[in-house]
Design a protein around this nucleic acid. Structure first.
Lengths: 338, 338
DNA sequence: CTGTTAGCGCTTTCAG
DNA sequence: CTGAAAGCGCTAACAG
């Protein structure tokens, strides 16, 4: 039987006092008599009174809810990130509304609409891979809904964002290989127009230059991230006359496919050729032919940080746009690699 | 500049009509003059009017929000599940509020409180592993918040739930091994008090009996799901005089650890011993020593189904408790194994 | 077809 | 210290 829930009014009536007194009693307001306060509190407990938050949200224009928009919840990177967001939010009595864009621009716009309707207090987003126009985010300013970006970030100025410096990450990876005496280092990059790919490429060039190794464009190939795409990329790399002794791959999934391909060609991984990639998937630990190392991007921490920044904006502790940089680390089985 | 958002009142004032007329115009209410309607609609568009959902939520006692409580978002099973929930919800204009219990009973209770405060229209939950008392869910009835369980389900009668029949799944696994001529089949089960473990054990017994093989309790060992626990379990199994030729493991993660252990003992997996497990992790595809097959539980579909049931309850299409059964399948690299 | 009125539950001046 | 009253923005019952 869903009984009618007790309200402040109800309590007031039973106690023959005004609703405002009840409200005061329940909020430790200074100007309230100790005796009335006790009466109210005890009756409230007896009736199992609980404030109707929707009324309060409405009245206060604040929902203690933040929206999170991600391409896909089931990708490990994002589920780690949202885990960090949710944990941080929960600590501060905020709840999290989620939406998946599936990397679809239209879907992303729709989610923003819904979240705006729900009057979320702020939004954290990793932009869809095929979003190249950001007016739907700009529009949120009008509603006073702050946005913090992470992972996939628009190139607009003056935004708040958490970012993992993949240039730095790539430099670390290359330096590591060079220290291991590799001189011909192949690179299986992702789709060229992805910022994530561009950053990696930039890091590659910087690292090669710093180490006084010539940059050879033929050592750079691209995959569309499908197994077939990666196989093709591997094929090109292995066919090149300056065959690389080591390969940096866009991420661990790409490495998995690349290793598979190499093995099918009779190449012995970690003897004939070596890999380094990005993501630091736990499963690397179990692979028979794992990469030498993988660049950890700390998605959980990125999520926490994004939530922290958002909270600061909401609570007006921050006025200037903030860009937090998370430093990626080269890892091997959860140990740092230097 | 966060300008003040236009309201129905504002539109009414500018047009010298009543707010109710504006409301009617905006809702295609039958009794509204075509001309006023046009005026309202055009002004609304001009001002960029958008209804304040929090006011509507409050007024209608409905938030179009459903709460999802999961142990951990970053576990693949759960992130797949919530992905299914969110997709289904979005199709029906519902949004999803998430909370992670981290398998902690107290945390679970707190999340329920928060969700109740937010007046979610319903809740979907996979119960925390150390929750053995369900009054916090019962309490939701009072607030008229329906609950649909999935995956980890309380043993209370008359609940709505989506369940994957792991007895059936285990029978399939054992039948498969027996068909492959295995007679001594070890079983690394999870913690004994987990319903998931109990179901698997029951399935094991049933399958052995049906195949007229004697049930040997020494072939059943338990792991606390840590690598160390699994190693210990493997150790016991391999030390037993009736050494199993095949092993069914609680899930693919356990298999990974078990395989690792076996290899460290010089045992050649998929020659000296064979594995079957549960979860059908995509990464099995890349393992050098993968299980012969793994039981797919279709978490995405479980999520969708749970959401569907919840929606039916909310829309009062269903009155009787529903228990949906998802049939697990024995898979190998995303192919069915018969 | 349209306006008036009341009210969802709570907070917050403003008087007293 | 307490009560009355207004109002957040919207909907809906009731009159006209």
């Amino acid at each position: 039987m869903p009984e009618k829930l007790p309200t402040i009014k109800e309590i007031a009536k039973r106690l023959n006092i005004s609703p405002s007194s009840v409200s005061r009693a329940l909020h430790n307001h200074p100007s309230i008599g100790i005796s009335t306060k006790e009466k109210v509190v005890s009756l409230a407990k007896e009736l199992g009174y609980e404030p109707n938050q929707t009324a309060i949200f409405f009245q206060k224009r604040k929902t203690f809810t933040i929206g999170v928009i991600l391409p896909k919840l089931s990708e490990a990177f994002f589920s780690e990130a949202i885990s960090g967001i949710e944990d941080f939010a929960a600590k501060h009595k905020y709840t999290v509304l989620v939406g998946q864009s599936h990397n679809n621009f239209e879907k992303e716009k729709k989610i923003i609409e819904t979240m705006k309707d729900h009057r979320v207090d702020g939004i954290i987003v990793s932009v869809a891979k095929n979003t190249f126009q950001y007016s739907h985010f700009e529009a949120l300013k009008k509603y006073n809904i702050p946005v913090v970006f992470f992972d996939c970030i628009p190139d607009t100025p003056n935004i708040d964002a958490v970012e993992c410096d993949m240039i730095d990450g790539t430099v670390k990876a290359i330096n590591f290989l060079i220290k291991k005496k590799h001189k011909v280092i192949g690179f299986i990059n992702g789709p060229a127009k992805l910022p994530a790919s561009q950053q990696r490429l930039q890091g590659y060039k910087i690292a090669m230059q710093k180490n006084r190794l010539k940059f050879d464009p033929q050592l750079i190939v691209n995959t569309d991230l499908t197994p077939a795409g990666t196989e093709q990329a591997m094929f090109e790399l292995l066919a090149y006359k300056r065959k690389p002794s080591a390969i940096v791959a866009f991420n661990d999934y790409v490495t998995l496919d690349a290793v598979q391909y190499a093995r099918s060609k009779g190449i012995i991984v970690n003897r004939d050729i070596f890999f380094v990639s990005y993501a630091n998937l736990p499963v690397n630990h179990y692979m028979a032919y794992p990469p030498l190392a993988s660049i950890e991007q700390f998605p959980y921490e990125q999520g926490e940080k994004a939530m922290e920044i958002l909270l600061n904006i909401i609570q007006e502790k921050t006025m200037q746009p903030v860009k937090a940089i998370i430093e990626p680390q080269l890892m091997l089985n959860n140990q740092l690699v230097l």
